[in-house]
């Protein structure tokens, strides 16, 4: 999916821009999903992911985690962990990820993988990080000015009323 997002932006089919965030300066970091990056397509797709993210939030508002791309840590939501019943251990596993995200001081973690999204959302609450966790499609539509008010379940209060389509 990321490769297509990147392709469509490069081809001018998705006319995204980051003007909405020029003054707001909301900071974003991104989770590299293990399955897509390390286990499948490698750093090439991680670079596409960053190209998309920077295009929609602004380069100066993107902060990478350390380590990242193929060397990134798993969030702890993969491998069936969300359903395997060992919740305490799963949250302990996720402590590494939570610390990584907090170190970026980002307001949002973009998780364009369903497992990561669920796990990191829970980590933010459990460890009190209070960062929001969003799908990439949400931010793409926000930057295109086509995100309606009912499509903002994962945006924090700071972005609930920004560039609302139809408002």
């Amino acid at each position: 999916m990321y490769q297509y997002y990147a392709k469509w932006i490069r081809e001018g089919k998705l006319k995204v821009n980051s003007d909405w965030n020029k003054d707001l300066k909301v900071k974003f970091t991104v989770q590299d999903p293990c399955q897509i990056v390390r286990k499948s397509y490698g750093d090439v797709v991680a670079d596409d992911l960053r190209y998309v993210v920077k295009s929609v939030v602004g380069e100066e508002n993107f902060i990478d985690m350390t380590p990242n791309k193929s060397n990134n840590y798993c969030c702890g939501g993969g491998g069936g962990a969300l359903q395997s019943g060992y919740k305490k251990q799963r949250l302990q596993y996720g402590m590494v990820k939570d610390k990584q995200i907090k170190a970026t001081k980002a307001d949002y973690c973009i998780a364009a993988c369903h497992n990561c999204h669920s796990q990191i959302h829970e980590l933010s609450k459990y460890y009190g990080g209070n960062y929001s966790v969003v799908h990439l499609w949400t931010l793409l539509c926000l930057s295109l000015g086509i995100l309606g008010e009912n499509e903002r379940a994962y945006l924090g209060d700071d972005l609930k009323k920004v560039a609302v389509y139809g408002a």
Partner: peptide
């Protein structure tokens, strides 16, 4: 060991 259900098989160990 139930540890096998806690490992997410993320392959970072193989990468490293």
């Amino acid at each position: 060991t139930p540890w096998i259900w806690m490992c997410t098989m993320c392959y970072r160990c193989v990468y490293a």
